[in-house]
């Protein structure tokens, strides 16, 4: 019964609070911005097409009157064709430029800007995660991070490919065997966020989850030293 009662609540929640569009870090906000931007541009395209589509299908439907008409032969129209070639190019440039900028921004390239960055080693294996902090402490189910401090993840896998994903903090980064991938992120709000494996990795792929707790820096220090 309790579960049934939750249905309407979940309905409302799910409508306006999609995780990817509710970013809690700069990285995720950048990505959400790109999503909104591309969605906006694309909605414009959809509208234009829909408008033409509806107009033409309604206006030129076969009726009793035009049943035997022979439409005029029409090879094409240079001007129109140029318009619908050039216009999308402009729209796409409008999307491509921010895409390039943000892709460079969110990718980890070499040195960290922040000496104070926290380094976390993440190891994926079938079917659990291991998070190892700088002092050698390890956790599995929960990843605890300090607020407002840059975190650099060093990820590697013991077996197959996994993918590390905390939707509210950043996009995915694959976790490969025999190779280290990196991801940087700075959480900006405290809270508990879902984390998942996003690359199909075998029987219990669906259960390869973890919780991400972002807490205040002071609390984080005590938590880390207590462990």
């Amino acid at each position: 019964m309790k579960k049934l009662a939750m249905i309407p609540i979940l309905l409302i929640l799910s409508g306006c609070n999609l995780r990817v569009l509710d970013p809690k870090s700069q990285t995720a906000s950048d990505q959400a911005f790109l999503i909104y931007l591309s969605f906006g541009i694309m909605m414009f395209v959809v509208l234009v097409v829909a408008l033409l589509f509806i107009t033409f299908t309604v206006k030129y439907r076969e009726t009793e009157k035009n049943r035997h008409d022979i439409p005029k032969h029409e090879e094409g129209n240079r001007t129109l064709e140029i318009i619908w070639t050039v216009f999308p190019i402009i729209l796409l440039i409008g999307l491509a430029v921010p895409t390039v900028m943000i892709t460079y921004d969110v990718s980890y390239i070499g040195a960290s800007s922040d000496d104070n960055a926290l380094h976390v080693n993440v190891t994926g294996e079938q079917f659990r995660w291991t998070f190892e902090y700088e002092n050698g402490e390890k956790t599995h189910k929960t990843l605890v991070l300090p607020k407002d401090r840059e975190v650099i993840f060093h990820l590697t896998s013991k077996d197959v490919i996994h993918s590390f994903w905390v939707p509210k903090l950043a996009g995915k980064i694959d976790v490969l065997p025999g190779e280290e991938t990196r991801l940087k992120v700075t959480p900006e709000e405290t809270g508990t966020y879902q984390g998942k494996c996003a690359e199909y990795c075998g029987t219990l792929h669906a259960d390869m989850r973890f919780e991400t707790k972002v807490i205040k820096q002071a609390e984080f220090q005590t938590w880390l030293s207590k462990k």
Partner: peptide, 12 residues
């Protein structure tokens, strides 16, 4: 196609 945004969409 928007690479950075795809990191969110990818495999979902």
């Amino acid at each position: 196609a928007s690479a950075a945004a795809d990191m969110q969409y990818h495999d979902t």
